[in-house]
Design a protein around this nucleic acid. Structure first.
Length: 206
DNA sequence: ACCGGGATGTTCT
DNA sequence: GAACATCCCGGTG
């Protein structure tokens, strides 16, 4: 198989942006459906192979659990927004806002299989030894795609700043795996992580 | 391969 | 002052 492993390669089918109604649902429904869709920033793109759902007021691990703050306003905004937050003093992570406006629910994008603009990804991620290291983590993929805090609040449906999520007709993964979320000190018991089974670009186990 | 620790600074208690 | 939806590097086996 190609360097993308079990991941479906880029197709010649036209890329179609996901409509607002796709996001306007429970993040636990949206998350697995986002697998094998394509996250695009201008010339760079990757196929989504790992996601996690964050569920607002019922989820102690969600940034919105305790209500609105200056940081999380985007997550309380309309579905289809891009919520980008800063963590551990150096890293950015990106989410697709879901549900209804005011709910504060979203899907964290945790890993991509690189599809386009790999030359630019390598330039922005000198630490990556192999291509599977380019986007195999939520902060890695933001670095690889050139996403940071200036993209917080961008509308994926309108492709603000050239950022959007598309369906390229690849279809869902052959195997959709499901398990516990990663890196949490609370609510680590909720099985709200999904990934493309067998894909080498999924973030490393811990 | 696996494991441990340091980097680095915003956010909220 | 502590926590943090992480990553990288250098140690050891």
């Amino acid at each position: 198989m190609s360097a993308g492993g079990t991941t479906a390669p880029s197709t010649s089918a036209r890329l179609r942006r996901l409509p607002r109604r796709f996001y306007r649902r429970d993040p636990r429904v949206v998350a697995p459906e986002l697998l094998h869709k394509v996250l695009v920033h201008r010339r760079r793109a990757g196929r989504i192979v790992e996601v996690e759902a964050y569920c607002g007021g019922e989820d102690p691990a969600s940034h919105t659990f305790r209500g609105p703050t200056p940081r999380n306003v985007t997550m309380f905004g309309p579905p289809g927004g891009l919520y980008v937050y800063f963590t551990y003093g150096l890293h950015w992570c990106a989410n697709a806002v879901c549900g209804e406006e005011g709910q504060g629910v979203a899907v964290l994008i945790r890993a991509l299989a690189p599809l386009r603009g790999v030359d630019l990804m390598r330039a922005d991620r000198p630490a990556a030894r192999a291509d599977r290291d380019l986007c195999s983590g939520p902060a890695k993929l933001c670095q690889a795609l050139g996403l940071d805090g200036t993209f917080d609040g961008a509308d994926l449906v309108r492709a603000d700043h050239g950022v959007t999520i598309c369906d390229d007709g690849a279809g869902p993964p052959e195997v959709i795996a499901n398990g516990l979320r990663i890196g949490l000190s609370v609510a680590g018991d909720r099985p709200w992580r999904w990934w493309a089974g067998g894909d080498p670009n999924v973030s490393r186990l811990r």
